[in-house]
């Protein structure tokens, strides 16, 4: 069979067919794997899946990606707003308060910037994405005690998740100036995550010795109770779990053993942050459980 002839014929009928393929980024991964295996016999089956995917839905628009980013920023903004208003914050050190203030200032700026960009594209920015009051009330201390009941413990989860969330959608902004803005926000979230981790006495980077290393945020994909559709967010189809933070294989290269020099698993995990898909971020195992009134 002539795969490329089919593509050519299709593109004569539908000039945008190749755009459809490109919009379904995952297809590239499958194509690469299949081609590498040289599995000629499996090709027709694979091609069927390829075309099905290409025509199965429309690609996310930049507005959808920005709305998602804005929702996460609003969520973080509200979290830090609640922290600043809490009794725990008033007893924190001046340095810790200053760090929270600086982070909150950035989340404010990001929310303003993203809302402006969304309006510029002719859409109405999402609003009202807040950190659940009841969940916040359970964060009994500022930073001492078990991570799950401290404000900074949850802040670490949120920042690390934010870093992963931006990565998960960068590809949908490929080649655009919006991508640059998203990356400029993304690295700020990385700086925030590092600082929060430092305030908690954790390493700035993901590490198996983290007190949160066993948390679902780092160790699993969607578990249950996904909350798609909240706030009008468009949740792209979810098929497979994103890599866990303890992943040691990047671009098919086993980092611990495949680079000539052996590296430890901890170093391999820490040297690459992983991405997360929308459904995973909004799932109740991650940010979803904290989103609400």
């Amino acid at each position: 069979m002539d795969f490329f002839k089919i593509i050519d014929q299709l593109s004569e009928v539908d000039a945008d067919v190749l755009g459809r393929f490109d919009s379904r980024r995952a297809v590239f991964g499958s194509l690469g794997t299949a081609a590498k295996r040289s599995a000629l016999a499996a090709a027709p089956l694979f091609l069927g899946a390829l075309f099905q995917k290409a025509y199965a839905g429309t690609t996310a628009t930049p507005v959808e990606v920005l709305q998602y980013a804005l929702a996460l920023e609003l969520f973080e903004q509200d979290f830090y707003k609640k922290v600043q208003a809490s009794a725990q914050y008033t007893t924190a050190s001046a340095a810790d308060k200053a760090a929270i203030d600086q982070i909150k200032r950035h989340e404010d700026a990001h929310a303003t910037l993203l809302a402006g960009a969304i309006r510029g594209l002719g859409a109405v920015p999402v609003t009202g994405v807040t950190f659940k009051q009841a969940a916040f009330a359970g964060l009994v201390t500022f930073k001492t005690g078990p991570a799950a009941t401290t404000q900074l413990g949850v802040a670490q989860l949120l920042e690390d998740t934010g870093v992963r969330a931006y990565k998960g959608r960068a590809g949908e902004l490929l080649g655009t100036d919006l991508l640059t803005v998203a990356l400029q926000i993304h690295s700020v979230e990385g700086r925030h995550a590092a600082k929060i981790r430092g305030m908690r006495g954790q390493r700035a980077w993901v590490n198996p010795a983290d007190d949160l290393a066993a948390h679902p945020v780092y160790t699993s994909g969607v578990t249950a109770g996904s909350t798609p559709g909240a706030f009008g967010l468009v949740v792209p189809p979810y098929t497979a779990a994103s890599p866990r933070e303890d992943n040691t294989v990047q671009s098919n290269v086993p980092i611990t053993t495949g680079l000539g020099t052996p590296y430890t698993a901890a170093d391999a995990q820490a040297s690459f942050d992983e991405f997360l898909q929308v459904a995973e971020v909004l799932d109740n195992s991650r940010a979803g459980i904290f989103i609400g009134a």
């Binding site: 690469g32 990565k167 700020v188 979230e189 430092g198 700035a204 690459f272 942050d273 992983e274 991405f275």
Partner: peptide, 20 residues
């Protein structure tokens, strides 16, 4: 796209280093 993902995976680690 695959290269962009890799670059994104690395840059946040650089940002963590920078902050540290």
């Amino acid at each position: 796209p695959a290269y962009l993902v890799i670059a994104g995976q690395i840059v946040s680690v650089e940002a963590r280093h920078a902050a540290y």
